[in-house]
């Protein structure tokens, strides 16, 4: 009884946050990735047709338009000092750019015709690139430190652990965990299916994956145990951890599905479900240090949600005409940058 009363009292409050647009730009291209520089001063927007725009974070003034890759650009990654941006593309190259001058500082062979993934170590000068099954480790100077033995199939994602001591790749057959100083993998987390993306929990305890077969896995890195989450509508490409490593928000459908890893979870628990999107959710990002979650969907809606076990709620939303193609929080968590499929780039203050 009392519980019911409690719930009545606590019914969702009207949105208490609002989005105020700081600036807006239009690029006639599908932005494949939006990325804030770690110092928050610049927002990089990589267009699928090649060029990469560097915007002033505060006002949207274009600082540089980097030529990017003659054939499509596939991914970008910032160096921790914000002075270098790495990009990869379908010209088979890894390119490093001086973001102050806009000049290219290195052009490196990715090892295949499509270089699809690139990731700077968040704590050092190391950079990992993936082209097909080729995995290469570089330094900021453009020297090849190591080429790892080929992966079993095309590498779909690379992510560094938050302390920069390890990284992991995903491919068909699961996840492979590496220590950058060793040529051989540390551990393989095997799954007979195509793993599309991975995210380390900030505390390094879990590697979560999203899979083509509409599953989400929690790999416990310590033991190699696999917790499988079934029942998604479609393949899962959207994963976001909360900063405290408690919640993993996942897409793979029209509802945001959030797993709670506290206590005995997430195995055997009922996830938190957030409803509000009309079509598939395509992007999910938690704040870096706060508990707000941003979601973007094929319905063009961007939602900002407060995530709590008992009273998660949609705080505010905005709607674009086209499906959302990317979302990212500024490093200070105060702004959210959004792009849609026709190349609108908008930065809003929360």
């Amino acid at each position: 009884m009392s519980r019911v009363m409690m719930q009545r009292k606590d019914k969702p409050k009207p949105p208490s946050a609002a989005l105020k647009t700081l600036w807006r730009a239009n690029i006639d291209d599908h932005i494949i990735q939006l990325a804030w520089s770690p110092d928050g001063k610049m927002l990089a927007a990589a267009g699928v047709s090649g060029p990469i725009m560097l915007f002033n974070g505060v006002d949207g003034v274009v600082r540089h338009t980097l030529p990017g890759h003659t054939l499509d650009t596939m991914a970008i990654s910032w160096h921790r000092d914000s002075g270098t941006l790495a990009s990869v593309g379908q010209d088979g190259k890894v390119r490093l750019w001086d973001t102050e001058t806009g000049a290219q500082t290195a052009e490196l062979p990715g090892g295949g015709s499509w270089v699809e993934r690139v990731a700077f170590n968040p704590t050092s000068d190391e950079l990992v690139s993936a082209a097909g099954r080729k995995l290469r480790l570089w330094n900021t100077g453009g020297d090849l430190i190591r080429e790892y033995p080929d992966a079993n199939s095309t590498i779909t994602d690379i992510k560094w652990r938050h302390d920069g001591q390890q990284f992991a790749i995903s491919a068909y057959n699961g996840v492979v965990q590496y220590d950058p100083i060793q040529p051989e993998p540390l551990r393989r987390f095997q799954w007979q299916g195509s793993t599309l993306t991975l995210e380390w929990s900030p505390d390094g305890r879990y590697i979560a994956t999203g899979d083509q077969d509409s599953t989400v896995h929690f790999w416990i890195t310590e033991t190699g145990q696999d917790l499988q989450m079934w029942g998604y509508e479609t393949k899962v490409l959207e994963l976001a951890w909360s900063c405290n490593s408690r919640y993993l928000a996942t897409g793979g459908g029209t509802q945001v599905v959030i797993w709670d890893c506290s206590g005995k979870g997430p195995a055997g628990t009922k996830p938190i479900m957030l409803e509000g999107h009309q079509h598939l959710i395509k992007h999910l990002k938690f704040q870096r240090n706060g508990m707000l979650l941003a979601s973007g969907g094929n319905d063009g809606m961007v939602g900002i949600w407060r995530v709590e076990r008992k009273k998660s709620a949609l705080l505010t939303s905005a709607t674009f005409k086209d499906p959302i193609a990317g979302i990212t929080w500024s490093p200070d968590d105060r702004c959210v940058a959004v792009t849609d499929e026709i190349g609108t780039v908008a930065v809003a203050l929360l």
């Binding site: 199939s153 095309t154 779909t156 299916g193 195509s194 083509q212 077969d213």
Partner: peptide, 22 residues
């Protein structure tokens, strides 16, 4: 590069081409 993936944990009828999806 042809990459044949089995879906649904090994069901041969559900093999797909991962390279094409990408």
């Amino acid at each position: 590069e042809e990459e044949i993936f089995e879906m649904n944990n090994g069901c041969i009828c559900c093999t797909v081409r991962g390279d094409l999806i990408r």
